[in-house]
Simulated scan of single mutants.
Amino acid sequence: MGKGSFGCLMAIGVAIIVVLSMAVIGQEISNREAEEIASKPLYESTEYVQTLAEDMIKERLKDPDSYQFVEMNEMLSSSEGERIFVVTYRAKNSFGGYNISQATFTCDKDNLHIVSIE
């Protein structure tokens, strides 16, 4: 094995160590982010609320793959520690055309509930 081959193998080894180190650091950051999200009330993570709402809406659609998110608005509730979210979305109707609809959810510290779908 020549000097050039040894240098090449050494560079590949260092690259592998760097990639593995970055993967471990990335996993630690992901775990920290997950812990932060879990420690907050559910309604403070609007991205998570949006994902849960999407799943709940899709369960009730005739064609779940046709779901298209439009927007989500947050409103204060009259109940302490609760928020109301209104999700506007598009989805296929029974005739194959698209309708714009809204779903209203209540959200407390731990749970998201559908109030209505129009």
Rank of each mutant, 00 (worst) to 15 (best):
I16P: 00
G81V: 12
E74Y: 06
L42K: 03
K58P: 01
I57Y: 11
Q50Y: 11
L76T: 10
I29A: 11
T88Q: 14
I57D: 05
M75A: 15
Q27S: 11
S30L: 04
K62M: 03
V115F: 09
S39K: 10
N31T: 07
D63V: 07
A23L: 09
V87R: 02
S94T: 02
V115E: 15
I37N: 06
V49A: 05
I84T: 12
N99C: 04
L76W: 05
I57P: 04
I25N: 07
I117W: 00
A91L: 11
G97T: 03
E74T: 14
R83Q: 14
F95K: 05
A91D: 11
N99G: 05
I16D: 04
Y43G: 00
H113P: 00
Q50L: 13
S45W: 01
D55K: 15
S21C: 01
I100A: 07
Q102S: 14
Y98W: 09
E36S: 06
Y48E: 15
G2I: 07
T46R: 14
T46E: 15
C8V: 03
S79R: 13
G96E: 08
K62E: 02
K40V: 06
E59I: 02
V24R: 07
E59Y: 03
S39Y: 02
V14M: 15
S101E: 08
S66W: 02
A23F: 02
V115G: 08
D63S: 07
I17Y: 12
